[in-house]
Design a protein around this nucleic acid. Structure first.
Length: 568
RNA sequence: UGGGGCGUAGCCAAGUGGUAAGGCAUCGGGUUUUGAUCCCGUGAUACGCAGGUUCGAUCCCUGCCGCCCCAGCCA
């Protein structure tokens, strides 16, 4: 049998498999996940992978997903990021409903769990400083040594811990540690720090607390308090799982979530680490978090990527535990697939070359009415004026055309899309020898849509009527880095050396068909034969439109020509 | 030379003790007033290596190799 009509393979991955089993076995009736960003930066395409997984799993299994801010470190976090993160998750297409929480919502309960640990003799107040603690921690190959404060009495620990909370000690003087095993081969189990003193105002709890719990203590308990069934995180937390489970087991946790790790996203020709992203922004290598070259969600949005394209991308890359290095083409093709279906078509000339149609009446104007989308008549039509003087793209004319060049050249014919077939009769040069304009003749019998369309012409090019066209600015974006793995060739690992000097090209002399005058910020069009472009949402103005190139169209001719020239 | 992971075609990624889904990329071809889209076809040694168990292993066992992560009072 042909598989032409078979249903596509359903999205599956090892995590969904585990969840299915947990549901089938009756271990869980409902599944609960969570997306837990720290509000210390903006979300990027790597977060999108996690968002699509966590919210996607909740959707697939009719469960729920908490949107939870992991705000346990007031030193690094800032409320300014919260709004942006929520906006980005919503934009991506996910809804947390009532389930918006913060780790800081649980500070009181977390504190009580800590006292419980102390009561059980499973935690103690450490009075060495950070350096001293590190000294006794041991190394990867040598076990650590017990702290001199490890055997403090429960009463002393409790008293000290309460004084810590009450602000009686300075930052760094004491810390609460779990009492596990200083000789564990897993360093995370060598009496990890649970609480530290930070006399700094928290963005949500203000000055209510001066001790703050660390990630390991906070995360699992927050999961448990929310009834999370599957806590999905990235691979670097794999070593933390024993600690995650230890904490839940030693305390009266309401339930025991299961942590499952998957590999984080790596994309070629870009960087995704928060540290590097912040550096790009702060050192002004890009124009902010939403620079269209940034693979932040705000950057992708401004670039013209529809959320559906990002979801498609996440579906295509899959979920697994292996290191990966995804090619840009996967992202770009996801955008093309979505945009091809939804973007209205328009004609735009990026690098104008004047063409005078010498046998066309000087004062005549006619209007063509092509559809906005070749396959979706519901999108309607638009009016495109035509007259004696038009612009075509410089790239669509060659004085000396290579083999298989279907476009315009001296003595050659080409079809003006939706209009007539023209023939290039004469090339007019500037004094410096550059092509200034073309004199062509048109054949009235080839008018688009008429019965006798006449001869077959292989080449079709786009154009705009000079007097009717509107000038716009277009920004052509390319990858931000020239190295598939930025910084990998530099002994010092400096990724900035790999910045692509041509990652943005601003073209100011573009002309587009008049219908684009009503384009609104963030609208995306396909400029026929060129690519997808969206109205810049920050710098475009009704009287001075600015378009960002989201992604080019596939261009087999450019590829062919490049290969041919490479052979010579 | 401690611990934890990973290793299926160029890049991702399913899957099974019985001879390997799918996507992206590639290369052909067809349709086309976008060299786009769409459609069809395409990888005769792709299951890290070496042994072993088995009638038969990518999937089981043993050993080896390679890569990633961990020594924050970051997450």
């Amino acid at each position: 049998m042909s598989d032409k009509n078979s249903t596509p393979t359903p999205a599956t991955d090892f995590i969904r498999n585990i969840i299915s089993q947990d549901l089938d076995s009756g271990k869980h009736q409902h599944i609960v996940t969570r997306f837990p960003p720290e509000p210390n930066g903006q979300l990027h395409i790597g977060h999108a992978k996690s968002i699509c997984l966590n919210f996607g799993v909740a959707n697939d299994f009719d469960g729920k997903c908490f949107m939870r801010f992991d705000d346990t470190n007031p030193v690094k976090e800032d409320n300014e990021y919260v709004e942006g993160i929520l906006r980005d998750v919503r934009w991506l297409g996910f809804d947390w409903g009532e389930n918006l929480t913060h780790a800081s919502d649980y500070f009181e309960q977390l504190y009580l769990f800590a006292e419980e640990l102390i009561q059980k003799g499973k935690a103690y107040v450490e009075s060495q400083n950070a350096d001293e603690i590190r000294e006794l921690r041991g190394t990867l190959t040598e076990p650590g040594k017990n702290s001199p404060f490890r055997e403090r009495s429960v009463v002393d620990n409790l008293t000290l811990f309460r004084k810590m909370r009450d602000g009686e000690f300075d930052d760094g003087t004491h810390v609460l540690r779990a009492k596990i095993d200083m000789a564990s081969p897993n360093i995370n189990l060598r009496d990890p720090v649970l609480y530290r003193i930070r006399k700094i105002s928290h963005q949500r709890t203000a000055d209510q607390w001066c001790i703050y719990p660390l990630y390991d203590f906070t995360h699992g308990l927050s999961d448990a308090l929310e009834g999370v069934t599957h806590s999905l995180c990235t691979l670097e937390f794999e070593d933390h799982r024993p600690l995650y489970e230890w904490i839940l087991a030693e305390v009266s946790a309401p339930c025991l979530p299961r942590q499952i790790e998957f590999s984080r996203l790596n994309l070629r020709y870009t960087v995704l680490s928060k540290r590097r992203l912040i550096q790009l922004v702060e050192e002004r290598h890009v124009d902010g978090w939403d620079d269209p070259r940034m693979l932040t969600l705000s950057g992708l949005r401004r670039r013209g990527y529809p959320p559906s394209a990002i979801r498609l991308f996440c579906k295509r890359i899959g979920i697994s535990k292996s290191e990966n290095n995804i090619e840009m083409s996967v992202l770009e093709d996801s955008a093309r697939e979505e945009l091809d279906k939804t973007a209205p078509r328009a004609m735009a000339v990026l690098r104008p070359l004047k063409v005078v149609i010498t046998n066309y009446p000087e004062d005549k104007t006619e209007e063509f009415e092509p559809s906005r989308h070749p396959k979706n008549p519901d999108m309607g039509t638009r009016k495109v004026p035509f007259s004696r003087e038009i612009y075509i793209d410089h790239d669509d004319f060659r004085i000396d055309p290579p083999a298989k060049y279907f476009r315009l050249a001296p003595g050659k014919e080409v079809r003006l899309r939706f209009a007539y077939v023209i023939r290039c009769e004469e090339v007019i040069y500037d004094s410096d020898g550059k092509v200034r304009e073309l004199h062509c003749t048109y054949d009235q019998a080839t008018r688009s849509g008429t019965k006798a369309e006449g001869r077959k012409v292989k080449g079709i090019i786009h154009w705009v009527s000079i007097q009717h066209s509107v000038p716009v600015e277009v920004r052509l974006y390319d990858r931000l880095f020239v190295n598939p793995s930025p910084g990998s060739d530099d002994p010092g690992g400096n990724f900035l050396n790999d910045l692509n000097p041509d990652s943005i090209e601003t073209v100011t002399s573009c002309r587009v068909e008049p219908g684009l005058l009503k384009a609104k910020p963030a609208d995306v069009y396909q400029f026929e034969r060129v690519g997808y472009f969206c109205v810049d949402s920050k710098e475009s103005r009704p009287e001075a439109l600015v378009f960002n190139r989201t992604v080019t169209l596939r261009d087999t001719w450019a590829k062919l020509e490049q290969e041919n020239s490479g052979q010579n």
